[in-house]
Write a protein that binds this DNA or RNA. Structure first.
Lengths: 344, 344
DNA sequence: ATGAAAGCGCTAACAC
DNA sequence: GTGTTAGCGCTTTCAT
């Protein structure tokens, strides 16, 4: 039972009508084109009976639209991105779009390869977490009138739509929370990177320390250090040297390594030190102690991203849709940032 | 600078040669078709200068191949699947294929919608974690000679390629590990589901208990119970009622809920009870105590999946490639499954 | 109310 | 060696 694919032509032939008629009917233009009830029904019934599926490739070739949106993130296996992917996927399918997810590993070359790949495929729009050096490539997409929305970070120098969160405000507030809970020597572990979101997070921390007349302790882990053991060593020394009573981890990834270091080298400190992480994760709430986290509004980001993209897709190039959105993150307070408290 | 897209025709016109020549050159068939060095170079140079990108849609329409592979999993935001996605993505891009990831939420209707969606798009191959009731749909794909590989679970009744792991063996061994560490009342928390992998896991547990003359304590959480609080309640009562000294969680998801219950209701037990989870997660190794986990060989699964798909794609329908692979999971022993041991 | 036909961009058999 | 052309499946203008 090798039911080969049926084309619009097959239907036309079988029903003794023209492809035009079939096309009109199938595209719901029967009324508008004043196709007779009878023919309309005949076509519809037959199409159903053979389980006709239009060839979207041909359709896209003809219309120039592929109904595909690319979502390029740093690493799809990252909790934040994969959760977001799930949300975006739902919205897109709902609107008749498919979503291609891909990871650029924060590398420019890979980002470029991917963008080129998809341009060849006439992808309709791009949602991108840009790697540091692809400003030019993004600018090109924009100038070619291809809908692009950046998120997580962006390029202040070019005119693009983006959805980000107010990183510095979020970190500032979270740092203040530590101060309010009477931690005095608050360390900030981040990566050395000039990405907008990382700079903003560090700024938030520094501002909070200055506002409270506290000393700043920043550890910048080399961005491209792939050797986890080295990173662990750095963090281990840093904790020992500075006499910290609290640590703010600027990324989820660093938190995981940091917690491992604490467990291995300073197990007694896990219940003493104040700990806050940027980006939540399901497992942080069941940790001992539960870890306080700055949580990005995933749903909101996903929705904002998609409404922006869909609006850009709708508005032709004549009246470009502009949307630069800065959302707020929330602080989920858990035991790890409270001293002298029963800390299960 | 709205550089509109260039077509092969544009090139031909600009260079005063035919589209055929251009096509041949661009497809690397210059030698084979004995196009002169001169023309070849001219075309290549010009194509480069205008940054020519072939329209893949047209190409696919013509060749019938889209160079897209669909990977449909239960939930792309799940740790296991998202990590695997990352691995598959890399292999695929390397071989010139793009990958579309999507989540079926283990629902038949959604699975069907997605499959239909992609069939319309002439996707080349499918890698699928099947929802329970889509046996028929899978069988159809197979009978239509469309490459399909199932994984995580499969349908024993139909002849398909698949890559799974030996769930019962893995759980049996891990259960034995608990017995060897002198736990006596070992509970098994799973979901009520007839999926092959879940049945195999439960079988492994039961076999191990029987082999050791130990009593079996199985809790089956209703599969479609979306209310987490209810699930927590079930687990909480179960732990209290059975006097267990160890628990085996059959899925990562249950482990998370279970750990939360323990933290909230039986904090003193976290360091006494033996705990093993199915499927590892980065965070389990930094937990207090670190959680022993049955770990699926992600890389191996990803590679096996992709080599299978690629081979099926290569071998035309004449000599179907057969590969039903059963891999082994490994037990990562951490403190949570050892009693009387310093448990940081 | 329906049909013929052009054309989206590309490939490849065939012609010269 | 290079060009002509049919056709992949569809949409849509124009004709009848």
């Amino acid at each position: 039972m090798k039911n080969k694919r049926h084309s619009i032509k097959d239907i036309a032939a079988a029903l003794n009508v023209s492809v035009t008629t079939v096309s009109f009917v199938l595209n719901g233009k029967a009324r508008e084109k004043r196709i007779s009830e009878e023919v309309t029904k005949k076509v519809l019934d037959y199409a159903k009976s053979i389980n006709y599926k239009p060839n979207q490739l041909a359709q896209s070739l003809r219309t120039g639209r592929s109904k595909i949106i690319v979502v390029m993130v740093e690493d799809i296996s990252n909790y934040f991105f994969s959760k977001l992917a799930r949300i975006i996927e739902d919205i897109a399918y709902d609107k008749g779009y498919k979503v291609l997810f891909c990871s650029n590993e924060n590398k420019d070359e890979r980002s470029r390869d991917l963008i080129n790949l998809f341009r060849e495929r006439q992808v309709d729009a791009y949602v991108i977490v840009p790697s540091p050096g692809i400003q030019q490539d993004i600018a090109e997409l924009v100038s070619d009138d291809i809908p692009v929305v950046l998120f997580d970070r962006y390029f202040p120098e070019i005119e693009t739509n983006y959805v980000i969160i107010d990183n510095s405000e979020a970190v500032h507030k979270a740092s203040q929370h530590l101060v309010d809970n009477s931690y005095k020597n608050i360390g900030f572990i981040t990566i050395s990177s000039s990405q907008t979101q990382m700079e903003a997070r560090q700024r938030g921390y520094r501002e909070a320390m200055q506002a409270n007349n506290l000393k700043e302790f920043v550890l910048e882990v080399p961005f491209y250090e792939k050797n986890i053991e080295k990173v662990k060593e750095l963090i281990k020394e840093y904790i020992a040297a500075q006499g910290l009573d609290a640590i703010f981890f600027a990324t989820n990834y660093l938190t995981q390594i940091g917690l491992e270091v604490i467990r291995e080298s300073y197990p007694e400190k896990i219940n003493e030190m104040g700990i806050i992480t940027f980006d939540d994760n399901d497992l942080f709430k069941i940790y001992f102690p539960p870890i306080t986290a700055v949580s990005q509004p995933l749903e909101e980001i996903g929705e904002e991203l998609m409404t922006t993209v869909l609006k850009m897709l709708k508005n032709a190039s004549d009246k470009p849709y502009k949307n630069q959105k800065i959302l707020s993150a929330s602080l989920i307070e858990r035991n790890s940032s409270f001293p002298n408290k029963s800390r299960a």
